[in-house]
Design a protein around this nucleic acid. Structure first.
Length: 569
RNA sequence: GCGCCCGUAGCUCAGCUGGAUAGAGUGUCUGCCUCCGGAGCAGAAGGUCACAGGUUCGAAUCCUGUCGGGCGCACCA
């Protein structure tokens, strides 16, 4: 697709003297007008002529310049139509050649992207609120992988901070009353809630919590540290089960505690740059020169212990020192926008030019119809419950619609998880979400299973073609002329690499989701109106080539999103 | 109070970073299984792009203000 755009740009540039790279080529609103369009408005000022006149003149000059592309002026627009055989051969040829790699490129080779995502807190249940960071982060990593970047996915586990002092204190007091080994997450949650309830009227308990965190941070290898270690191990084992099911993995699992040895050097590094000051007994960096009313960044509390921001600063320095990244993406909820702005301001005040490479890939907050998520109030949906229900429902539909399916359990897992994972990437990241069971568990319309179904049907057609001994046509313009009425679909297929590129650049998986939905919709409509097998053999072979290409692209899109592309369902 | 984000069909969302007549899904209504898989296809209906100004050849898109919603605002993470 890009080759046609490049050729058009070059031709226009040759006749207008404009820079080819700056020419905006777009799609006409009405596909019957053409495949690509160039609006002539931007030329009007330079040439001191009316856009329609420019279009007409330019159209005249371009005619004949572009082999396989016809030109037509329509008002102020110049519309281009690519010969269908040429288009089909180019698009399907590229797909066939690149296969699972189609959509990717090597534009990122030599560049490194660090991604911080998922990052759940130890001792808390993994619920639907944690799903977005995990899924979005994993997809953004795959998008960059596809573009040839070296990627480093880091799970920045929340395993440090004063809440662990509280937890340790609670375990010391009531640890015998719960089944810590048997049901760790639930037990820890019970203890955490109890701590907060009782701490309100028990200053001694509060102090015990503080003391425990001080001991933890002191590095002393005592009982507190041993307890904290055990907590971490128990929680990680639970998280791993979920990651495995979702097919998510990390290059590094580094809790906040990992950066513990770097805390003091980090504080020194910032202090050495001369931007720190004492304020009310705490060590802070003022940031209001960048933003009116921006609160200062606290590096050290009055009691000498560090904060979240200190640890994140230590982490970002460590990552820079280790990876010298070109991008460092934090896939973290929008409730932490201020935190990341502060983080970047500190780097900016230190005069570090790589500050702009650090990006907060924020996403909207999830709530339930009855209000905010609250583990303590029981207002949560546990992720495993959601996944189980989705899979169960997929299983029920399979039993009804396709009882002879070979491996129904596996496919139910693929489709059920597909629905959940796809749904979480459907809208723009920034949008807040109200969790709705019916919406997530829907398998019709703009859903993962709809796209998977399209893929499975294309696979089915290809299987049947093999049975009949039909082969796809040679990918040459002459043999693909039968696809003359399938231009829109070919254009959509050809657009995929652009989709992948902008989804990665904007760290926006929904661009891929929307694309894959559009392609599935067009494909469904197409094969409802175009019989692939059983007609004229030449036509069948050409259409088979299109089916093969579409199946590859849909499969690639789904895989980028972390959704399985079943051959049958 | 201050800051950031969001506001498009009844509902959930797109709208290609300023271009041609604002599009999907869902819900409602209507058709389509002697035909490659009906988790599907085709059609009808549904709009003051929150509101008011501004910028220019042109604004859902950019700027300002108002209203509504979300999130955040020094010793939590």
């Amino acid at each position: 697709m890009q080759v046609f755009i490049d050729r058009i740009r070059a031709a226009i540039a040759a006749h207008s003297g404009l820079d080819a790279a700056e020419l905006k080529i777009e799609s006409p609103r009405d596909p019957s007008l053409g495949d690509l369009a160039f609006p002539c408005f931007p030329l009007a000022k330079a040439l001191r002529k009316a856009p329609p006149a420019i279009a007409a003149e330019l159209g005249e000059k371009l005619t004949g310049d572009l082999e396989g592309i016809s030109v037509e002026a329509a008002g102020p627009y110049l519309n281009f139509r690519i010969d269908r055989g040429t288009l089909a051969a180019q698009v399907l040829g590229t797909i066939q050649e690149e296969g699972e790699g189609f959509g990717g490129s090597d534009e990122g080779s030599g560049k490194t992207v660090v991604l911080d995502f998922s990052s759940p807190n130890i001792a808390k249940p993994f619920h639907v609120g944690h799903l977005r960071s995990t899924i979005l982060g994993a997809t953004i990593q795959r998008l960059h992988d596809a573009l040839g970047y070296r990627t480093v996915g880091i799970n920045h586990i929340g395993d440090w901070g004063s809440q662990f002092g509280k937890l340790v204190a609670a375990i010391q007091r009531w640890g015998d009353e719960v089944d810590l080994e048997g049901d760790p997450i639930r037990s820890l949650l019970t203890l955490y809630i109890r701590f907060h309830d009782e701490a309100e009227n028990d200053p001694e308990l509060v102090e015990a919590g503080r003391a425990a965190f001080r001991e933890l941070e002191s590095g002393e290898e005592g009982e507190v540290r041993a307890t904290w270690r055990r907590l971490t191990e128990l929680s990680l084992a639970e998280f791993d089960r979920i990651y495995q099911r979702l097919g998510v993995s990390f290059d590094h699992v580094r809790g906040e505690a990992f950066y513990e040895p770097y805390l003091e050097p980090t504080i020194e590094r910032i202090r050495a740059s001369g931007i720190t000051e004492e304020s009310e007994g705490a060590l802070v960096v003022r940031l209001d020169e960048y933003e009116k009313g921006a609160p200062p960044c606290l590096l050290r509390k009055t009691d000498g212990t560090t904060l979240y921001a200190t640890r994140d600063l230590a982490a970002v320095f460590h990552r820079w020192d280790e990876f010298a990244f070109d991008r460092c993406l934090y896939v973290v909820g929008s409730d932490q926008r201020l935190h990341f702005r502060q983080l970047k301001y500190v780097l900016r005040r230190m005069g570090l030019d790589w500050e702009s490479r650090v990006e907060h890939v924020d996403f909207g907050m999830l709530s339930l119809p009855e209000g905010k998520l609250s583990t303590r109030k029981g207002q949560v949906v546990f992720l495993e419950d959601l996944l189980d229900r989705a899979v169960e429902q997929a299983g029920a539909i399979i039993a009804e619609k396709n009882p002879d399916l070979a491996d129904p359990e596996r496919v139910a897992e693929e489709v059920g998880l597909g629905a959940v994972v796809f749904h979480d990437q459907k809208r723009e990241r920034v949008k807040d979400v109200v969790f709705d069971w019916d919406e997530v568990l829907s398998f019709e319309g703009e859903t993962g299973p709809y796209v998977q179904y399209t893929h499975a049907r294309l696979a089915s057609i290809l299987r049947k073609a093999v049975e009949k001994g039909l082969e796809a046509a040679e990918l040459a313009p002459e043999s693909l002329a039968g696809l003359a009425d399938s231009g829109e679909l070919l254009l959509t297929l050809g657009r995929f690499p652009t989709v992948v590129r902008s989804a990665a650049a904007e760290a926006e998986p929904s661009i891929v989701t929307r694309y894959v939905l559009e392609l599935a919709r067009e494909m469904n409509s197409w094969y409802a109106n175009h019989r692939v097998l059983g007609g004229d053999p030449e036509e069948s072979r050409a259409r088979l080539a299109l089916v093969r290409g579409a199946k590859i692209v849909i499969g690639n899109g789904l895989r980028l999103l972390g959704v399985a592309a079943p051959e049958e369902m």
